[in-house]
Structure formats: C-alpha cells, structure tokens
Amino acid sequence: MDSIVTAASVVAAGLAVGLGAIGPGIGQGSAAQGAVEGIARQPEAEGKIRGTLLLSFAFMESLTIYGLVVALVLLFANPFAG
C-alpha cells in the first residue's frame, strides 16, 4: 500500500470513530440520565422506561457503529489499497 494512502486511512479511521462518537455519546448520556431520574420518580414504570431506553440506545448507538465500521474497513479491508 502506498504510504500516503496508509497515512490518510489511519487519520480518517481515527476521525471517523472520534467525530462519530461525540453526538451519540452526548445523546446516550442525557437519555440514561433521564431514564434513571424517571425510574427514581416512578418505580412502577421501570419496565416501560427500560424498554424505551433499549430502543433509543439501539438506534443511537448505530451511529457510533457506522463510524466504527468505516474505520475498521479503512484499517483492515481498505478498498483504496493498491
């Protein structure tokens, strides 16, 4: 592999994971905070709150996974490698 392509792939992989994790990280943190507060206020609604949290986490974390997959493809299965 060309050294410039290698360097660019490594930098792009880091950026993909790093930048892609900022938004979901903030969102998951606030969602978990809201869920814990809700469970503390209404313990009888714990099942529904946890279920909603599971669904929202699964959709939020997929954004992180997209960045992770792009980074891993760039590192281990790079389509630009000659």
Binding site: A32, T64, L68, V69, F76
Partner: peptide, 21 residues
C-alpha cells in the same frame, strides 16, 4: 443501569469490531 452500574457499558461495541476482523 441504576442497579449495579451508573452508566451503560460499551462492551457490546466489541461485537461489530470482532465481526469486521
């Protein structure tokens, strides 16, 4: 969450990593 840990763990993210590897 809320019982034995205060945050949601990220262990599950190892699964796509292992898949791509």
């Amino acid at each position: 969450l809320g019982k034995s840990s205060k945050t949601v763990s990220k262990v599950q993210l190892l699964v796509p990593v292992m898949l791509v590897l």
